[in-house]
Amino acid sequence: MNLLEVKNLRKYFATQKAVDDISFNIEKGSIFGLLGPNGAGKTTLIRMITGIFYPDEGQIILDRKTFDPVNDVGQIGYMPEERGLYKKMKIGEQAVYLAQLKGLSKDVATQKVKEWFVKFDMQSWWNKKIEDLSKGMSQKLQFVITVLHEPKLIILDEPFSGLDPVNANLIKDEIYGLAQRGSTIIFSTHRMEQVEEICDHIVLVNLGKKILDGTVHNIKQEFKENKFSIQLTELPANLASSAFDVVDQKANKLVVKIKDGFKSNDVLQHFLQQQVNIEGFNEILPSLNDIFIMEVEGTRSRTRAFQTVA
């Protein structure tokens, strides 16, 4: 079941097509990666999903109903990339206030804030002010504020920036936990290794258009170049085969590219016939990082120069 469906969304600003006909679906309980270079239109897209901007065209369907920016805000938790809190306000009061703005009653909000503060070991912060916190600490607080009202859809823009590995793991575990308990998470970042680790499904946008959409596994499959690495005990006499080309060779390790019309078994067969022991045989899949760079570079010649909108 899809929690969020985005259909043909468009948002044009005076000088650029920030979001130009983007559609995708997000399954309930999944962790969704929204990727793209700087200025690709991610923030505009997120702002439309959070109801901050109205789309010029297109439809947003949240939980099978058309998204209503006024009444559905309680269903969404948004942590923007640029974090912001009132510097002079006490932390506890601030968290309760922001939860109340999301529609929680004061008692429930206070209760929830206390629970989360215990969970993240932040009880002693209640009467402190933001200006007393380090960057990492305020990051943790911002995360708590984002998920406090148990939103169905949580949007996190670069949630790990500025966090040390210990706290990053704490937040990461919390993200998995939230997804398991049924929340859907949109995760926007430039850090591809995090995406590979965390996300089930990704969409890559550039220049306001969607250029990739699929599960991490499928996308890698789509971009694979049929390369395999083979670890052998010794090199066989005959390396030439009609099934593959040797692309790279290091000691007893070969990288081969399978020709069209052949399969990995054909490669194995070739070496099995030659009486050498095969110690390892792996497919080489491109990393998301490579795919990202390849796809974005391909469109770079048309980089966001300010276009006039007809």
Binding site: G51, I52, V73, G84, Y86
Partner: peptide
């Protein structure tokens, strides 16, 4: 101005108009 430079405006306008 404080709300804008602190970037809290974006958090709040995702809750209220």
């Amino acid at each position: 101005m404080e709300e804008k430079t602190n970037r809290i405006a974006e958090v709040i306008v995702s809750s209220v108009k």
